Computed example of a mutant assay.
Amino acid sequence: MRLKERSGRPFLPNEALAAGERLLAGFTRGQLQPRITASWEPQQASRAKGERGGMADLADSAIAARVAVNRALEAMGPELAGVALDVCCFMKGLETVERERQWPARSAKLMLRTALMALSRHYKPPAPSRRSRVEHWGAEGYRPELYS
């Protein structure tokens, strides 16, 4: 992937990179990475029938991270969330994503940029614009006079 646009600006702005890293941090903190090997942890091997498991064994911070990741994915929408997850969280290359999704060459980087820009707006929404004057619908003198 070319690191700069023709104008000299970086292809992925800093806020997009920070959003991707924040998504990965939440994904990792939420323990959402699938296991590749068998788990030999004694607490799972000794669990009796009917005991709690799954979400009940997670720390509050992991549950909060999962909720935050789900909100971020919802903010990107289903069209963009998949490419962001594949590249940022599952560490797939852009060519792999294009091959798996049967996309044209060099299209994954555009989709990734769009996804990360949407994600950066989710994490840091733009500040509301402040107007210098107060606007209202009433004509001059529409307010009643207050007598004390």
Rank of each mutant, 00 (worst) to 15 (best):
Phe27Thr: 05
Gly30His: 07
Arg121Met: 07
His122Asp: 09
Ala18Glu: 10
Ala105Glu: 14
Met55Arg: 12
Gly8Leu: 02
Ala72Pro: 02
Gly54Ile: 13
Lys124Ser: 08
Met1Val: 11
Ser132Asp: 15
Lys92Asp: 15
Asp60Gln: 12
Glu21Asp: 11
Arg121Val: 09
Leu24Gln: 11
Leu110Ile: 10
Val67Cys: 02
Glu15Ala: 12
Ala56Gln: 14
Met117His: 07
Ala75Ser: 14
Arg29Glu: 07
Val69Ile: 05
Pro78Asp: 10
Leu116Val: 03
Lys124Met: 01
Ala84His: 04
Glu95Met: 06
Ser46Gly: 04
Arg113Ser: 04
Gly82Ile: 00
Ala48Gln: 15
Lys109Leu: 08
Leu32Gly: 03
Arg6Cys: 06
Leu146His: 10
Gln43Arg: 11
Leu32Gln: 09
Arg101Tyr: 01
Gln33Leu: 10
Leu112Trp: 04
Val97Gly: 00
Ala81Phe: 00
Leu12Ile: 07
Ile36Phe: 00
Val134Arg: 15
Arg22Ser: 09
Cys89Asn: 11
Leu73Phe: 12
Ala62Ser: 13
Gln44Val: 07
Glu5Gln: 14
Glu5Ser: 07
Asp86Gln: 14
Ala18Tyr: 00
Ile36Trp: 00
Pro104Val: 02
Ala75Gly: 07
Ser39Thr: 15
Glu98Gly: 03
Pro10Asp: 06
Ala105Tyr: 08
Arg6His: 08
Leu110His: 14
Ser39Glu: 14
Pro42Thr: 01
Gly53Leu: 12
Ser39Ala: 12
Leu23Phe: 04
Trp103His: 03
Ala127Asp: 09
Gln44His: 10
Ala45Ile: 05
Gly93Gln: 11
Gln31Trp: 00
Ala65Glu: 03
Pro78Gln: 08
Arg71Gln: 13
Ala118Cys: 09
Arg35Gly: 08
Asp86Pro: 01
Pro126Thr: 10
Ser129Glu: 05
Ala62Lys: 02
Leu32Asp: 05
Asp86Arg: 11
Gly77Asn: 09
Glu145Tyr: 00
Gly138Val: 07
Asp60Ala: 10
Gln102Tyr: 03
Tyr147Gln: 14
Phe11Met: 03
Gln44Phe: 12
Met55Trp: 07
Pro78Val: 04
Leu85Val: 12
Ala127Ile: 07
Asp60His: 04
Gly53Gln: 14
Glu79Met: 03
His122Gln: 08
